[in-house]
Design a binder for these strands. Sequence first.
DNA 1: TCAAAAGTGTTATCCTTACACCCATGT
DNA 2: ACATGGGTGTAAGGATAACACTTTTGA
Lengths: 322, 322
Amino acid sequence: MRSLPPASTQAIAADLIALLVAVTAGDPRVLTIQDQNALPSGPFELAHRSLQSGLRAWVERQTGLPLGYVEQLYTFADRDRTGAADQRIISISYLGLTREQGLTREQAESSQYEASWRSWYDYFPWEDHRLGTPVADKTLRSGLTAWIAAAPDRTTRSHRRQRAARLFGLDDHIWNEELVLQRYELMYEARLIPEALRGDGSPVPTAITTSVPGDPMILDHRRILATGIARLRAKIKYRPVVFELMPETFTLLQLQRCVEALAGKLVHKPNFRRLIEQQELVEDTGETSQETGGRPAKLFRFRRVVLAERAIAGTKLPISGT
Amino acid sequence: MRSLPPASTQAIAADLIALLVAVTAGDPRVLTIQDQNALPSGPFELAHRSLQSGLRAWVERQTGLPLGYVEQLYTFADRDRTGAADQRIISISYLGLTREQGLTREQAESSQYEASWRSWYDYFPWEDHRLGTPVADKTLRSGLTAWIAAAPDRTTRSHRRQRAARLFGLDDHIWNEELVLQRYELMYEARLIPEALRGDGSPVPTAITTSVPGDPMILDHRRILATGIARLRAKIKYRPVVFELMPETFTLLQLQRCVEALAGKLVHKPNFRRLIEQQELVEDTGETSQETGGRPAKLFRFRRVVLAERAIAGTKLPISGT
DNA sequence: TCAAAAGTGTTATCCTTACACCCATGT
DNA sequence: ACATGGGTGTAAGGATAACACTTTTGA
């Protein structure tokens, strides 16, 4: 066992990958590079003070997006990612929360940014349970069943069945919206994800893989997206990060819709409102909004002070198990 | 905004830093490099399949420790870490759980490993609240008070007071054992941490800094340790990771002591036992143990099946707020 | 007999979740 | 009138945390 620093400078480079999330029109969206289904990324340079500041500088300069909240997701350097064996890229992925408007303006001014916002459910249709079990589920289920049936022996088969049931909320299991990554990994293992079929010479069961909905992405970007969704779904329950995605003022229903968009499931309205107001996360602006039908709703504003107060204590959201 | 991969190979190297934790004799211990107060680290090489497998290979080869559980902590590449401006090291830190015995044997066989286990409370004495508020607190408090008093204006002073109170459980606030990193960061900011005084030309208030107990470490290794402690304290509450630190069979009190060692606070015995048995995390071995005084205790064994069952569902530990 | 640890039973409290219901506005 | 969304009250159920007490061994 040695101490620092024997790290010789090899053919190693570092890339920063940004998963930028906004919620618009009831849809959680991610910034992608057009036509490629890739997440934006940029090299980490010596000029950068730190990884995070590197990311911030680079994203804000190129997109003009106000990056409210930034958090590191994961770092990886799997050999399979690049073909070359003598070169290695370390990828450090970040999750950033923002609002969509910022980009559209910038984008209009200059066309060098071939970026666009896509609903994250384009990539993960099975993760949207707001309208009950999604359509994707029928083909997905048959894929899972095939995978279970293809197990080499009884024990494995039973394990697979159990695992699928728990992860996808089958039988008497309840749907847990946080298990995005685990679901993706199971599907990857079951080769229901096109990404799993790239780069190696294994047989391609086209019939199954093409039938499961959900757009693929380059490299393991969809895996990064899964990680980010999972992280965000977990985080909104105990940290006031939703507000980074909201406009300056909003109604409680808008806030609720935003949470629902992220969680991929509906929440109980009365309890939601109580919990939000109880915790004094928002304050009344005195104004009201007349939107689509119904009684005018009070407009609220996020109480920015809680960021200081509750950097510690935590917050709650009623996203129940049923 | 560009796509992949413009990452040119610069003077960048990657280092893997291992935070290896074991619990022995009621103390949570970390593996350190002797005389240096450094965490073991090694370069990431092209031969490694992935970051995690690189770490595993390297740790297991060099120490012979059985690495049960490994988890990525954080990646950073702050410029301040290395003096040179034309060279950059990316550090990827990992948390690994193990048992101490493994090393001591290996160590005896070969002296090339100048490593030793140190209690993590040597570095964070203020984090141990098992015997009530620790002694360190007296000098720590005066340090905090000084920092609060040194605020440039009333508002800042009040903010500082609030923040210190919340983080350190002063006034009517309760002690939250998970806020290890936040406490460290406050103390760093308040220059109560020797590490904060290195490398830049700012004045050194020796009187204060030398009086706060807790050994320093090289670079930002103590920060990594803080991150790891926080992560572990949070994790044991919802994932059955404690068992990675236990011997094959153990009594419930031993298990409780282990949890207490990690959490840095005592737990309610009857409730602890109930919760453990309720969740069927352990099974009776039929044997008993006669240790230091008292009625013989049943020996239990961790039910490894729950790792599969509960990779998802989660577990609970009664570490209360009071 | 006492100390130390192993256990069991029970209760008070809080939080979560759900149900039931009324209010205000536009079409 | 009714659809749509805003908003309040309250009760059932479960989980948590605490208290009181009995049992079994070794010194």
